[in-house]
Write a protein that binds this DNA or RNA. Structure first.
Lengths: 179, 179
DNA sequence: AGCCCCATGTAACTGGTTACATGATTGA
DNA sequence: TCAATCATGTAACCAGTTACATGGGGCT
C-alpha cells in the first residue's frame, strides 16, 4: 500500500497533473519508489474516489486535457496515519545475487561482463545522486524538512556505494579466477 | 521471472519436496529471494508441466504425500540461459525511505521509534548472517562454488551493514532535533 | 476419538508490467 | 494537412500475498 502514499507525498510537496507526477517519479521520488504513468493514473482515480485528493477546478475534464490534483484534508490525515503505522521491512528480492548463486551451480561463463555492466550502471546512478545532493542540499539549506529529505537521499547514495563496492569485490574474485 | 530460476537453483543444489524448498527459502536462499509455500507449489506445477523438473518416481502422487522433485536437462539448460541473459537492475522500492520523506511533509511524531525498531531488526539479521558465514564458510572451504556462494552471502551482510549504519545516522539526526 | 503437525494444494485479491488507444496542441 | 508530442487513459497479464481447504500419520 505504498504507491498511493507516495503520490500523496508528491502532491503535498506540489500539486501536479498525472504526467508531471510521472516525471517526478522518474526523478526525485523515483530513486526509492518507481512507478509508471499507467499506475499513477489508476491510483489518482482511486484517490479521487476515496476523497483523498481532488482535481483543481477550472479544468476541462476532457480526455486529452491536463488535470491538476491537490490533496484534501482527508488525504493528509491518511498519509500522517500511514507514517505512524509500523511496517516490517520486506525481505530482499535481488535478481543479481540470485543469478550469481545460480552461476555457482551452472557455470559463470559470461557473467563477468554482466557484473561489469551493473557496476557501470550503479556508478552512473551514484554520480547522479551526488550531483543531486550538491544541487539540492547546499550547506545553507538546513531547515527541518530539508535535513530529512537529505537523509533520504543519503540513503540512496549509500545504497549505490554498497553496490559499487560489492560489485568491485565480486569482479576482483572473478578476475583472480580467470588468470 | 526469477522465482522459477530460484527453484531450479535450489533443486540442483539438492532435490527436494515443496515443503523442504519452502524451509530452504526461509533460510539460505531466502536472504535474497523470499517465497511462500503457495508460490512454490504453484511454480513447481508449472516447471513440471514445462518439462524442466520431474517428480522422483516411487512416490505416491496422493494429496497429503511428500513429492520430491529433481531438475531435468531442459531445466538446467534454461537456468544456464537465464544466468547468461542480461537484466537491468530494478529500481529500488523501499517503504521506509518513502515514509521518511512523507514524514518530512506531515510530521515526524513517533517515527523515531519505528526507526529504532527497524534498526533492531537489521542488527539481528546482520548477526544471523555473520553466524551463517562462520558456520558455512570456514577458511578451509574454498572451492570455486563455495567462493561464489560466500560472495553472495557477503552481499547480504554488507546490505545489512548499510541499513544499520544509515538507521544509526538517521536516529542521531532525530535525537539531535528532539533535544 | 480428538488433536496436532506434516504436506500439498485452491481461490481470491492486490500491485506492478506491457501493450495499446485516443484526444489535444503545436510547428513544419 | 501531417507528424510529433503532450496528456490521459483501458485492458490483459503476471507475480506476490492472504486466507482457507484437504488429507495422512502419530500421540494421548
Amino acid at each position: 500500500m505504498s504507491l498511493p502514499h507516495a503520490i500523496l507525498t508528491a502532491l503535498l510537496e506540489k500539486p501536479s497533473s498525472g504526467l508531471e507526477l510521472t516525471r517526478r517519479f522518474d526523478r526525485s521520488i523515483g530513486y526509492f519508489w518507481s512507478a509508471t504513468h499507467q499506475q499513477i493514473y489508476r491510483e489518482l482515480g482511486k484517490l479521487e474516489q476515496a476523497g483523498h485528493i481532488r482535481a483543481l477546478p477550472a479544468q476541462a475534464p476532457a480526455r486529452g486535457q491536463k488535470k491538476e490534483y491537490e490533496v484534501l484534508p482527508a488525504g493528509r490525515a491518511e498519509l500522517a496515519a500511514w507514517v505512524r503505522r509500523s511496517e516490517d521491512p520486506k525481505p530482499i528480492r535481488d535478481a543479481l545475487l540470485l543469478r550469481l548463486r545460480a552461476a555457482a551451480v551452472v557455470g559463470t561463463e559470461g557473467f563477468g561482463d554482466e557484473l561489469r555492466r551493473h557496476l557501470a550502471l550503479h556508478r552512473a546512478q551514484l554520480a547522479e545522486y551526488l550531483a543531486m545532493e550538491e544541487r539540492q542540499f547546499p550547506p545553507e539549506r538546513d531547515s527541518e524538512a530539508d535535513r530529512l529529505r537529505h537523509l533520504v537521499l543519503r540513503g540512496g547514495i549509500e545504497l549505490e556505494r554498497f553496490w559499487t563496492a560489492w560489485l568491485t569485490e565480486a569482479l576482483a574474485e572473478f578476475d583472480r579466477r580467470d588468470c
